[in-house]
Design a protein around this nucleic acid. Structure first.
Lengths: 215, 215
DNA sequence: GCATCTATCTATAAGAT
DNA sequence: TATCTTATAGATAGATG
């Protein structure tokens, strides 16, 4: 074996870093991967520990999309409890595929163009227990058309969440989704209803007088 | 000062916990708050460190929505570097309002219904530098109508991302975020193009042969 | 590049105030 | 109920194979 010099004998362990853009490209990439993984793990833990619903999307500086979400909260919980849940029968993405799922734009486009069918329809049209979501289907279809219209100009990402509830309290189930069209030339953009929340200073974002639970 | 008993003299410090749903309600709430904050912080750091774009949405078990996002990547970077950026002139939500912003459904609904205008239009219709995104506007409008149609049945959350790029490589700017209608009775639901990614086992999610950058 | 390793750094569970 | 205080669990920067 080789004799390493004294300085390289020991790892120096973690060092503190400033929160500013990492210059060295290789380091940036490594950090991106590590932290993205860590972020998604944290999100998963939050879901399980607190019965929360969460979704996260991260675009790398190169424009690659990474998505965290869960097909159903149950599936994620099962996963974290080490149970093996068959989610395929529900027509949803297995949790382990999604939690750290990578999405590559060109691939998505290809998939979209091919419009692969199975069992007589798009997979997402497959019947799900107690479906009856005509509106959702209608919405989805319309959304598709619209997206196509602007696909060459903007990146549109859509998240649709449909939750179940037994009582009035805890939503228990979910969906997540994604997708992105390929941006080619762009501009900055506009957003929605969130601004009014940002009325003035920090803690005043949410007005009083609502009876919804705080958690 | 008081003499505490020996057992309470010292904090016991952190203990290991299992990743499973927390039973005690008070603990769950505390944990939810702490971890949500932590998650959003991590997301912000990822954005800054790696020049990435990120957005995250968390629903508490009570159905309250919390959103992490950034109006422009620049604004978030400024924030983390301690610079004070005036984002109001761009018609975007100041970063500090968004990063840990809380969104309460009923409030959002109220805002939406009131359709508050300023300066002759919805705030999000305000001109932004180099706007020219007719398609985006068109899309947004259509989306609104569609969403109304299904608002009573499903919770729809839409994220629209429009990015800038100087070179062909790094998108540099913007995101936006948005909102959800109140679910009342629901079902589980369908999703989109993601399933094909989940073809079979883990690492094979993304097919080879594309020339896009890995980061 | 990807998987490990190790020394630290950071987040946070329980309590105390 | 919100904050503050530890001790400790967990995340991760940098080095290495």
């Amino acid at each position: 074996m080789e004799v390493a010099n004294v300085n390289s004998r020991k790892n120096m362990g973690r060092k503190k870093i400033e929160i500013r853009k990492i210059e060295k490209k290789s380091s940036l990439e490594v950090t991106f991967s590590k932290r993205r993984t860590g972020l998604f793990k944290k999100a998963g833990e939050l879901c399980v520990l607190c019965g929360a619903e969460a979704a996260a999307i991260v675009f790398s500086p190169g424009g690659r999309a990474f998505v965290f979400g869960h097909p159903t909260a149950d599936a994620v919980i099962d996963r974290f409890l080490g149970r093996d849940t068959d989610t395929s029968s529900r027509g949803v993405v297995p949790a382990e595929q999604v939690v750290h799922g990578q999405v590559q734009r060109q691939y998505l486009e290809a998939v979209e163009r091919s419009e692969v069918k199975e069992e007589g329809g798009f997979w997402w049209d497959a019947p799900i227990e107690n479906m009856g979501l005509n509106e959702l289907e209608q919405f989805k279809g319309s959304l598709e058309k619209l997206r196509e219209k602007v696909a060459d100009r903007v990146t549109v990402m859509t998240l649709m969440m449909v939750m179940e509830s037994e009582s009035g309290a805890g939503p228990s189930s979910t969906t997540m989704v994604e997708y992105a069209a390929p941006p080619q030339e762009y501009n900055s953009s506009a957003v929605l209803h969130a601004r009014d929340l940002a009325a003035d200073s920090h803690s005043q974002a949410v007005p009083q007088g609502f009876d919804e639970p705080r958690f």
